[in-house]
């Protein structure tokens, strides 16, 4: 072996992979935050439903709290269940 890698310090950034550009509730981009937050990322996370639709967590929670009867996904009207992997 002429050359061996002893160690490596990698730097990476992360962003959300959502199936859409914008949050269907607040229409803000997933790259940025919901209207209430100021800093994107861990502070304003995204959540996925079983129906595979994705929203800012703050937005969907607010939406679900407004629904009195059956909690539905605002995009496809299927009943909303959080997709927990």
């Amino acid at each position: 072996m002429k050359l061996t890698i002893k160690s490596w310090t990698g730097v990476a950034t992360w962003r959300w992979i959502a199936n859409d550009e914008n949050c269907g509730i607040c229409r803000m981009s997933f790259e940025s935050t919901c209207p209430e937050c100021s800093l994107p990322g861990d502070d304003c996370p995204l959540v996925w439903g079983v129906c595979s639709h994705c929203f800012h967590m703050h937005c969907i929670v607010k939406w679900l709290n407004l629904q009195t009867m059956n909690k539905q996904c605002p995009m496809c009207r299927q009943s909303w269940k959080f997709n927990i992997h």
């Binding site: 002429k2 050359l3 490596w8 962003r15 959300w16 996925w48």
Partner: peptide, 22 residues
């Protein structure tokens, strides 16, 4: 560990140690 996130490597910021044996 983190669902729904995509990593982008910033190679210009990465560095490492190389052992020269020749």
């Amino acid at each position: 560990s983190f669902n729904g996130r995509k990593l982008t490597w910033l190679h210009h910021m990465c560095h490492g140690e190389l052992k020269l044996g020749y």
